[in-house]
Amino acid sequence: MADASIPLVEARGLGVAYGGRTVLERIDLAVAPGEIVTLVGPNGSGKTTLVRAVLGLIDASEGAVRRREPLSVGYVPQHLAIDATLPLTVRRFLRLGALAGDDAVDVVLEEVGAGALAGAACHALSGGELRRVALARALLRSPDLLVLDEPTSGVDVSGQAALYRLIRRIRDARGCGVLLVSHSLHLVMAATDRVICLNRHICCEGHPEAVSRHPEYLALFGDEAAGDIAVYAHHHDHAHDLSGAPVGGDVHGHGHGHGHGHGEKPAGGGGKDKARSHG
């Protein structure tokens, strides 16, 4: 890995709008080599949009995304389907992403636990299997940055835990940076270094334990989050209206520094914030 202090990818003041409607605003995001960053947020919070902007698949309407050059990116999209009219084996699908021999292909397929699928037709795979295969295709490219959009959707809970352990192992073995999207923080906690809680803007970010207790996070995830962790007394420094825009109170949680283990957030508007960092 090259200099670890230079982020693999960095967004500054990123905003995305579709047809005049703001989907993302004021996003600052960086992924360092060897770091696992997880985006959490409710449906419609712009997680996939942010990932696509970071990948350069959509244009930012504000701000900019800088990628280290050269940067080998491995991407596993959330929705992945191969048209049944296209006869494509799993091996061949992997080789579309990188020039590699059969041996190298089989190694990465084994690594993701999809060795048995090598000869299968892509269109016959389930969504979960195809994402695993896409992860192997990403690994075959020896990525500096791995981007995974909801890699566990449609996978049962024990399978999800195993998949997150696998992602962590991949990071440990290869030293690549990982940008992960998850709809729930609970399962991904152990496999992530830093969490960014997103709801069209960055609500809060930091060490997973700290974010899980952050009032902004709890306000977004409500009962689901409360069931995951002990219930903490908290006050919201602002509420969200139906469009997701913060209303009332100062908006905090923007523009604060990045880094591991910071979780102590400035509590807004005199709210009693009991978030603390375990980092």
């Binding site: 698949l57 991407y75 999209p77 992945l80 191969i82 494509l88 579309l96």
Partner: peptide, 13 residues
Amino acid sequence: LAITAHEELARVE
């Protein structure tokens, strides 16, 4: 063939 199988993957690659 790469963009036919999956256009976004091909673009990222």
